[in-house]
Design a protein around this nucleic acid. Sequence first.
DNA 1: CACTTGACCTGTCCGC
DNA 2: TGCGGACAGGTCAAGT
Length: 317
Amino acid sequence: MPELPEVETIRRGLENKIIGLTISDIQILNPKSFHGDSKSLIGAKVEKVFRRAKMLGIVLDSLSLVNSLKKQNPNKKRDSKKTILFHLKMSGQIILALESGRQKADSENKFVGGHPTKDMLGELPNRSTRIIFTLKESDESKVFKLYFNDQRKFGWVKVIQNSELRIQKEKLFEKLGPEPLEEEFTWQVLKDQLQKRKNTPIKVALLDQQVVSGVGNIYASEACFIAKIDPQRRVGTLSDPDIKKLHQAIIQTLSDGIKYGGSTRTHFVNESGKKGLFLDYAYVYSRENSACKNCQTILLKIKLGGRGTVYCPKCQI
DNA sequence: CACTTGACCTGTCCGC
DNA sequence: TGCGGACAGGTCAAGT
């Protein structure tokens, strides 16, 4: 999936465009992709868009919904504020398209008020579209469709109560390791987190979301290269200086990933349907049999923890 | 417990 | 051109 930089890219793009919009309809094309009561979201307004690990959350302020419920049942006391949580897994996409609006499209680039129009985005919906949300401006001046596409159907969308987020009871969050781009993520924290994976190859340990959250196969491979550490090395053999280098490398590669709008191997696109450019700058991922950018040695591909892993046998020791 | 493997799905690419 | 197998950004459950 989309790893941390890809999900963060979508989050940043979406929040500018959907905060304040109201959900007016949800179409579920593949029931297995959606968990929860979709009808309970109709009428709710988007308040915030956040990311935790590789998950994206759309927080709803259900004021209008609460009011309509009160009319029906004034004594019913409940927290009806909800969040729509997304996990894109391997092939998920979240694409926002302007359906209709009063403004005319700019003939040059076909954007309307910064939004790509439908014809820029290829066929939508397409055969991998699983869920379609309809979102409207409060004055109904614009109508958007938010498409959740997912070719491989591993991804999901689920409805949770905001209270579950606050008290960290949501089991999807409670076991996650630290956010690597937050200040709390120091090299000592990384060292502590690695304690329970002493006998695991370091690259496999970096993929464990309980160790660090948000790192996936691309950025784990890149971080090992930047730190000049062989991805096969057992965690227990790493020195403190090794862990310090790895800590810096994780932060660097994830930050670069965000800077270049994420990585596109096949599926990833941002909320406007654009591909990420990070792989043009990657040192090792998907570069097997090519020359190392540092020493020209031919990069090797092996399998670690069942995942393809590319590294430089000379630079990474 | 720590660690590995297979399963979940659809699609593409490569070798025969 | 067809067919089988391996592989693809992730994460579980079940195995050793």
